[in-house]
Amino acid sequence: MPRKKKPVIEYRHYSLPISFPVLLLSGERWRISDIKSEHLHFHNHLEIGICHSDSGIMEIKGETIPFKAGDVTFLPRYLPHTTYSSPNTASLWSYLFFSPEDLFQHSFKSAYSSFEPNLWRMQGKNCILNKEQYPKVYSLATSVVEELKQQKPYYQESAYGLLLSLYIELIRIHSTNEMLAEQEAEHSLKSDFVISPALEYITTNYMTPITIDFLADLCHLSTTHFRRKFHEIMGSAPLDFLNSTRIEEACKQLKSSDYSILSISEQVGFHSISSFNRGFSKLMGASPKEWRKGAKSEAQSAKASILEFTGWV
């Protein structure tokens, strides 16, 4: 009997603007094909999507869930999924990407240790919220999109307030459903996206010393199996992904601060300036000094071209 083919999972990296770290993708470019992709994909930021037209299917955590115009989707980072429209249609979407811990770090009380839901407890059906049942979510999400599109005076302040209200509403909805899925958490940890704990840890602790053995333990895998699984999913070794995360954070500081290159390299977790310079030049094609001098556009950031706008139509 032939072995079941394993799903291919793509990592889609989105670089956020530094001045206001929210990325809006909207317009005719963001129509979803009716052809089902053979690949699942996941993002490095929280994704909120708004379906403006037509209908289709989302596949999340092994669940097949229908969507229609007016639905709002809420997908934590590192949650593999795919979307395709109903036959002979191409549903139109707007997408918001942001990292709650960066955007809202001064708005929440210090008691909040985690800004995103535990995706192991999050059932796929709770990722799609329909307009009829959750009119407040739809109204807030569409209002954020309009503010970012129109860019009237004080639009960032308005978008921030709306997005904070939207995020709180989503967390409230998630919290009411969390207990229902708690018994499934252990099973999901074993069967779903097994390297997610390592990705989450790198995202929030990239500036600290991190070993492969430690990351493997987080995922309940042997070091050898972890290396193989990580490379299979991410297309790179764990330490390469860690270093690219550090370098992207360094890019933000090089562009937005006057800290010395040595100071920045230490802040993002490199223990020698030589290893930082070498890794930076390899990834960015220029030395940190050269890159800082030429960093003029908001769009420029580490790995900005990696699967950034692929696989949609």
Rank of each mutant, 00 (worst) to 15 (best):
A111W: 15
K282C: 07
Q150G: 05
I210H: 01
F42K: 00
R292C: 02
F276R: 05
P66Q: 04
S19G: 07
E178R: 14
L103C: 03
E10R: 14
P7V: 05
L23S: 12
L79A: 12
S110W: 13
M284I: 13
K255P: 01
V145W: 05
L189F: 11
V72Y: 03
S191E: 11
G49D: 10
K255F: 13
E266V: 07
L96I: 08
A304C: 12
K303M: 10
L46K: 04
F276G: 04
S188F: 09
Y155I: 07
L92T: 06
F42A: 04
S263W: 09
Y78R: 08
W120K: 00
N88K: 15
K109Q: 13
K296N: 11
H106K: 15
K289G: 03
I65P: 03
L96C: 00
F226H: 04
F20I: 05
C251V: 06
I9R: 04
H106M: 15
L199D: 00
E178P: 00
L254W: 03
T82L: 15
L218Y: 00
S37H: 10
S305L: 11
M58L: 15
S196N: 05
S110C: 04
S113A: 14
S19V: 12
H231I: 09
W93D: 02
L23Y: 11
V268I: 13
I168G: 05
A302T: 02
L162R: 00
S281C: 11
L162N: 02
E266W: 08
F280R: 06
I273V: 14
V145R: 07
F98N: 01
P66C: 02
I32F: 10
T73D: 04
F276K: 05
L25R: 15
G311P: 01
C51M: 07
E146T: 14
I210Q: 06
N205M: 03
A250M: 12
Y78A: 10
I247T: 06
H43G: 02
T204Y: 04
D102G: 06
L140S: 00
N118A: 10
F270C: 09
I212K: 08
W93H: 09
E298I: 09
M207Q: 10
Y167P: 00
D213Y: 02
D258I: 06
L23G: 04
L40N: 05
L75R: 14
Y167C: 00
A111D: 13
Q151I: 01
F270L: 09
R77W: 09
L148E: 08
T142V: 03
K152Q: 15
L180Y: 15
F230P: 01
